[in-house]
Design a protein around this nucleic acid. Structure first.
Lengths: 78, 78
DNA sequence: AAAAAATTATCGTTTTTCGATAAAAAACTA
DNA sequence: TAGTTTTTTATCGAAAAACGATAATTTTTT
């Protein structure tokens, strides 16, 4: 594996952004964080998230935390 | 309002724990955090969450992040 | 009333976000 | 292919917040 421990929280932000046809720069703008930081989250490299940020993302994408965060049962890993 | 700003991320950990018939002490034990810190999360006073913690909770309760975290549209507030 | 469970509150340490910024890589376009 | 835009990666520093340990308080249960 590339980066350290496997934590089975999958970030599906990229999927939701695709569904909403919104670019990283645009979402970063609306949410009010830098595109660099949004990229960290979007590519699954973040280790935590503030509720204030999750809130703003959900608002911008009109979606639920569950649309963005997914728990993958390690026992059922492909 | 009691504590500062309203952030429309609702923590439904209490609901899931009730569904699973598990106590705070027991869950804290399994998850590996103190009951005090679990209480902060359970009662909606946390401002962020580590994915490693969310992971362990989802594993312990066999549920999804979406079962625990909910975004409430402010426009539709009761 | 007593016991158990849960919450609240401090303090200190450690982790991690996040902004700002720059550089590199990738994707797109003419 | 060259140029442009978008996205990703990488630092650095500051601020925020988790989390452990612990104790006190409150609530719930027996």
């Amino acid at each position: 594996m590339k980066g350290g421990l496997f934590v089975p929280i999958i970030v599906n932000l990229d999927v939701m952004m695709a569904k909403r046809k919104i670019s990283s720069n645009e979402l970063a703008d609306i949410v009010g964080i830098t595109a660099a930081n949004l990229s960290v989250l979007k590519t699954g490299k973040a280790k935590a998230i503030r509720f204030s940020t999750l809130d703003k993302i959900c608002e911008a994408l009109n979606c639920q935390p569950g649309d963005i965060l997914e728990w993958q049962n390690p026992a059922e890993k492909s």
